[in-house]
Amino acid sequence: MSSLSASEAAPPDPDLGYAIRVKDVRVDYRTIVDPRANTLRHSLTHLGRRGGSGGRAVRLIHAVRGVSFDVEHGSVLGIVGANGAGKSTIMRAIAGILPPSSGEIVVNGRISTLLALGVGFNGQLSGRDNVVLGGLAAGLSRRQVAERFEQITAWAELEEFIDMPMKSYSSGMYGRLAFAVSTHLDPDVLLIDEALSTGDAHFRRKSYDKMQELVAQARTIVIVSHGIGAIREMCDDCIWMHKGELVRRGKPDEVTAEYLEFQGVPPEPAKARDEAAGDLGGLDDAMVMEDV
């Protein structure tokens, strides 16, 4: 018997059927109560006190407390929640950046991230350098980056600015380039954390279209946003997190309505809501302040 037929006979692994499986995941941060305790000087001068750990008392912060959900291939999941709900933490855990404290996360496919803090490269460097570095950091070869370079700059409409240092970019230009890089790396799973709030209406339209294009190719997208309009328009599935726990999961319209009610935002008539979603403004812009 060949090994091929043996593997065909094996029962299918349920983990492989989903794009993302989050299984009872907890993420705890340890923060030192006294920030000065993070130094050699402090450790040496407090040696011997309280068993040598003097002042290094840590406070455990439970950012995510036992969250489980599965995401199907080709779906768009929105995550809403108040500040401090653990949305960004769970995104970093899915990206493999933060290790879970317990539980398990399974991701099938190439992960690309567009997280709150930006691409994370040097503002002194030109846009070109940052695009190349971003691609190489994601594990592409130099040739693969070169192939995508034109598409990326063209999509971001930054051809004339690509050789200028990134520090001279506006936040909109920065956001456009970051979005272009992360979506052009052929991701199977794209994680977007509050990256859509800096763009103007034209860019938002374009980024929605780009995401639709990815979804049509059975790619999976997870979006964290305070822009309820974006969640309602883009997502076919929604999660509301609060204080590290999953409160509700369901249709984006229903979950976001409940979430807004919980937040104390008066429910709006359906007509007004449709208009707001239509021009991509309204609520989205009203909540942008929270993104920062």
């Binding site: 493999g96 879970p100 539980g103 398990e104 399974v106 991701v107 099938n108 496919g109 190439r110 199977d188």
Partner: peptide, 9 residues
């Protein structure tokens, strides 16, 4: 396809 498993180590 890539397959990632992130555990609590």
């Amino acid at each position: 396809p890539e397959h990632h498993v992130f555990r609590s180590r």
